[in-house]
């Protein structure tokens, strides 16, 4: 099986959307834990060392969400303590934790998706349906790494000029603000220049054609089939209430027979991208060592 990165862009998009959609719709501990772990594994394999910041962000997100939710939600049977006449409950903490985990899982999967879906792939997927919005999305996505690179350049320039003093948190926060201000004015200007430049090159004067070197192989069909069917099964069963989890007022898991199979199915589709990635990496290494 080809990795998602080397599959047809349709296949990679459908797979990632299926996994994240299921995670967002079924917020059960049994599904979020594999989603988070599978997402983290997949993202780390794709991003390598550069994903460190995302890991820190996701960890913070989970912790903050678990701490903040009980301040606003007071539902739940197990009262941990009473803060200013408002009960702080274990259930609310767990709901916060689950919300944080959902967000973290989605961030990981979409982080992986942006690494897989380069702008040409994005244009291939959406170009036929809506070329303008496809271009817009691709342009917007391009802007994210561009901003990062530009901000680094501004920082370096200011350091070279002796304006930017690294050292303690207070001064670096102050300098970051300066950099941010320079960055926003550049971004606005750049947007206008980009638009002008595109108009000057004749954009929107006629139909655009795309060259897309993405054949649709049998294994792409397998990816799409496996993920759409699994997601449909999972979402249907949890919508019917066969398998589920209620947090308020008391944490109760529903679902008797085959619930292990239900959760195993989801764990399988969560870990599959990472597993295939790992397998291909191992194979590559093995082939090199042989010659």
């Amino acid at each position: 099986m080809r990795t998602l990165e080397r599959s047809n862009p349709f296949a990679s998009l459908v797979c990632i959307v299926c996994v994240t959609l299921t995670a967002a719709l079924c917020q059960y501990p049994g599904m979020l834990i594999p989603a988070l772990l599978g997402g983290a594994a997949f993202y780390s394999l794709l991003a390598g060392r550069s994903g460190k910041r995302t890991h820190i962000l996701c960890a913070l997100l989970v912790v903050v969400s678990a701490l903040v939710n009980p301040i606003f939600s007071h539902n739940g049977v197990t009262v941990l303590f009473v803060l200013n006449d408002r009960p702080v409950t274990l259930e609310a903490v767990c709901v916060g934790l689950m919300n944080g985990m959902t967000l973290a899982a989605v961030i990981y999967y979409f982080g992986a998706l942006t690494r897989i879906m380069t702008s040409d792939k994005l244009l291939y997927v959406f170009g036929k349906v809506s070329p303008k919005s496809a271009l817009l999305i691709s342009g917007a996505l391009r802007f994210v790494p561009l901003l990062g690179a530009k901000s680094r350049r501004i920082e370096e320039t200011q350091t070279a000029l002796g304006l930017y003093r690294k050292g303690n948190m207070l001064s670096s926060a102050k300098n970051k603000l300066k950099v941010f201000s320079a960055l926003t004015s550049w971004a606005l200007e750049n947007g206008i220049i980009t638009a002008d430049s595109m108009a000057a090159r004749g954009y929107s004067d006629g139909r655009r054609t795309y060259f897309a070197p993405y054949p649709f192989r049998a294994c792409d069909a397998v990816w799409i089939a496996v993920y759409t069917v699994s997601a449909a099964v999972l979402i249907t069963f949890s919508a019917l209430g066969t398998y589920g989890f209620t947090y308020y007022p008391q944490m109760v898991r529903t679902g008797g027979a085959y619930s292990a199979a239900f959760y195993a199915l989801y764990a399988a589709i969560c870990f599959l991208p990472a597993a295939v990635e790992l397998k291909e990496a191992a194979r590559w290494k093995y082939l090199i060592s042989k010659t």
Binding site: V77, T78, L90, C94, P249, Q250, M251, V252, R253, T254
Partner: peptide, 14 residues
């Protein structure tokens, strides 16, 4: 009515 159905599996960390 605060008593839950005994058939349902109760998960209580407390």
């Amino acid at each position: 009515s605060s008593k839950e159905e005994p058939s349902q599996e109760e998960i209580s960390a407390g």
